[in-house]
Design a protein around this nucleic acid. Sequence first.
DNA 1: TAATTAGACAACAGGCTGTCGAGTAATCTG
DNA 2: CAGATTACTCGACAGCCTGTTGTCTAATTA
Lengths: 185, 185
Amino acid sequence: MNKQPQVTEQTKANIRQAFWELYAQEPIEKITVKQITDRAGYNRATFYLYFKDIYDVLAQIEDNLLDVLEQLINRRLLRESEPDFSEHMGVFLELARRYSAQFLVLLGDRGDPAFASRFKQVLAPILDRFLVSERALSPREAALLHEFYLSGLLSVVVAWLRDPQGMTIAEFVPFIVNDVCNAHL
Amino acid sequence: MNKQPQVTEQTKANIRQAFWELYAQEPIEKITVKQITDRAGYNRATFYLYFKDIYDVLAQIEDNLLDVLEQLINRRLLRESEPDFSEHMGVFLELARRYSAQFLVLLGDRGDPAFASRFKQVLAPILDRFLVSERALSPREAALLHEFYLSGLLSVVVAWLRDPQGMTIAEFVPFIVNDVCNAHL
DNA sequence: TAATTAGACAACAGGCTGTCGAGTAATCTG
DNA sequence: CAGATTACTCGACAGCCTGTTGTCTAATTA
């Protein structure tokens, strides 16, 4: 029986955690490997056993987060034969709440714009199922309308996450459906 | 007559230009002062006469861009007693086109998320004049709706800029007004 | 013409990065 | 259970980048 890999995983997790605590406080370009390993309690060289550089740590965290999102979408949302927007929104908002600490940092002012792009790519197929228009749009117009809703919805969800004293999911969903999206659902 | 300041300004402009050429190609954290000054044809130390660090160069470029935008808004748009959304949009799109190279980089995947925030703050007062809702919204709801449109419109404009072969301003404005925003104008 | 100022630079100290080889502890094998 | 092997961690090194200081040159001023 091999017990070592657990040590490795624990070490990686500790380093990721230390990185994340720093990343929530200061921009990534000010963070040094020494800061991270000091905080995690390892030698600086140990960092390089598990990560290529500091951006690799961030990438792993992002990949993991997008994986969770993708699983949710593929397993719970895209399978339904009669999709319901409110239900989809509710499910998504629960996930957003659970990972709000990460989302708020990654999508915030010190965050990673590339993450926002990837996030939107993952969400795109869901929006496709609901977006309609009065008038028949050209492919180009449809793509732009899609981009509008994708960015708008993502931003409004982030704004909602930023205000923990604000609306509950039960209040927020009908607001989105009735007041924000009423034109194109 | 003092001719020196012109030399200074030219030097700064050369350094800014060299930085920008690099920034369009690679992420800012990979850029070194040496790269910039080599490209601009100065000694590395000269850089520090005019800029605090590399982020200071970016900040100056961003400030300048937001200044231009703010001037446009204060002088041409907010003064009108009977504002017209289509006209505002058209004026804004001309500016966006003129500076599209900068906007596309700053608002793109390798860009600066803080710039997007500041950009939206500058645009906010304009949107305030046009955004309405069927139902009376609470302040919290109104803020969220505002955020939705601000982010959505900015993203759709960026998507439009990315596609130079795409719609003209004359085609794009009515699309925005009639197909995208029809619910809340 | 002499003094002052602006502009540019070479050189230095200090910090961070990425790597390599050595050391220690845990696991496997005969 | 003893010796070999593997997993894991660390100290140390070379090289690059940063930010600053003092110096040199050329232009401006008096």
